[in-house]
């Protein structure tokens, strides 16, 4: 799990693509992409292999900021990340596709 982390905002589709390992050192980089979201936004996890509580905190803050506008929808999680979100009860906080 040494994959480099990336967070890419696609302005045409308003999707944020996450990839690699989203650990606590990557919060600032993720926040740059998340700050671009101004309404209901999908976050694509298909290339994300790992996320920690720091990463979840970053998504949660953005979700709260966009709450009245539709929030974040998290899509294409791998099984481990989905299990983490379910364990911590975040499957009821975020819409998960």
């Amino acid at each position: 799990m040494t994959e480099d982390f990336a967070a890419v905002w696609d302005s045409e589709t308003t999707v944020i693509y996450l990839s690699g390992r989203f650990d606590a050192t990557q919060v600032a980089r993720a926040n740059q992409a998340l700050a671009r979201a101004e309404g209901a936004t999908d976050v694509d996890f298909s290339e994300l292999v790992y996320i920690s509580s720091a990463g979840i905190g970053s998504l949660l803050a953005t979700h709260k900021r966009l709450d009245k506008l539709g929030g974040l929808r998290l899509v294409n999680m791998n099984a481990h990340i989905r299990e983490l979100f379910e364990l911590a009860g975040f499957d009821t906080v975020f819409e998960m596709g």
């Binding site: 509580s53 720091a54 905190g57 949660l60 911590a88 906080v93 975020f94």
Partner: peptide, 15 residues
Amino acid sequence: VDTTLSAEQRTPGGL
């Protein structure tokens, strides 16, 4: 951690 709280009440603390 109370995993049943709403989005507004949740924080990543203690996770």
